[in-house]
Design a protein around this nucleic acid. Structure first.
Lengths: 152, 152
DNA sequence: AGTTGAAATGCATGTAAATACAACAGCAAA
DNA sequence: TTTGCTGTTGTATTTACATGCATTTCAACT
């Protein structure tokens, strides 16, 4: 019974913006699965679901993974995860990444199409970004750091 | 006042496993910032923090990003985000990724050290994984698909 | 300084979520 | 069959959280 329900729960939160556990219980009841809020609280714990804030300002349950559905967000996620640190000298920004990830991060930076960035070159875990001016490199470092800290 | 506090909150949830908003208020009070749970509820909303389940089975606040602190998890996140689809023929598994991400995914697969995988070679958005047997390729496809769906 | 409007906060309270406890179902060993 | 164990669920309750409303703070103006 339980695993079937878990699957349905994933379906439901994917399809609707579920704001409360009671609401979820309601949906399940419509599918003929009679459960209480207590059970759902436990399900949610097992499924490791989280309550996130939608752009609309409402909270809703989500699956933590696959949160980012569009490509832009997915790239950002990759960037954040692969990023280790960065520093600059003159107009060159040097980004350290997880091993083997520098190419990928370079690709992402390229894809952003910032035209203050002249070009990028990547090794294994190091990426160099050539900026038009030192100021740009500085700003960019700030930007990366901020981004990774989740401030957006 | 508020932005200062927001910064501290990020610090605190990074450093401690904060289970409740009251607990967070407590920590802030220790830093001389006198706030109530109500304010923190609003802060948390603005910072888009989420309550996630730790491995220990307890809930704690986290920044949604940077959730994956250890390298293994971070690689998994990248793998999930960069993955598009896969298929196989014989003992060769072909994985499609986002543009420019194939190298990175290949790197990750290599790093997993599965010895049923003979080797990998990556183009721009396509990765080929040479498996020891067709069965392995099939299993692997299953594994990837499952993983991306968030079931593990 | 006084006025005004917007943002931040606290207080009180209603709502949502987690859980202690008990009941029960399935199941394996005696 | 009985006993004891494990896992699932509901009930009742506690605990945690969100929010309406009143109050304060602060900056931008007269």
């Amino acid at each position: 019974m339980k695993y079937n329900r878990h699957a349905r729960i994933l379906d439901i939160i994917d399809k609707y913006e579920i704001e409360t556990q009671d609401e979820l219980a309601e949906k399940l009841r419509e599918l003929g699965m009679d459960v209480t809020q207590a059970t759902i609280s436990r399900d949610i714990k097992e499924l490791r679901l989280v309550k996130v804030l939608s752009p609309s300002g409402k909270y809703h349950y989500s699956s933590m993974n696959r949160e980012s559905s569009n490509t832009g967000e997915r790239l950002m996620v990759i960037l954040k995860e692969a990023f280790v640190s960065c520093d600059y000298a003159n107009n060159i920004l040097v980004v350290k990444t997880l091993p083997g990830m520098a190419q990928a991060v370079g690709e992402i930076v390229d894809s952003l199409g910032w035209n203050d960035v002249v070009g990028t070159i990547a090794g294994d875990n190091t990426l160099m970004i050539v900026c038009r001016a030192e100021k740009i490199a500085e700003d960019l470092m700030e930007k990366f750091t901020r981004m990774v800290r989740g401030v957006s």
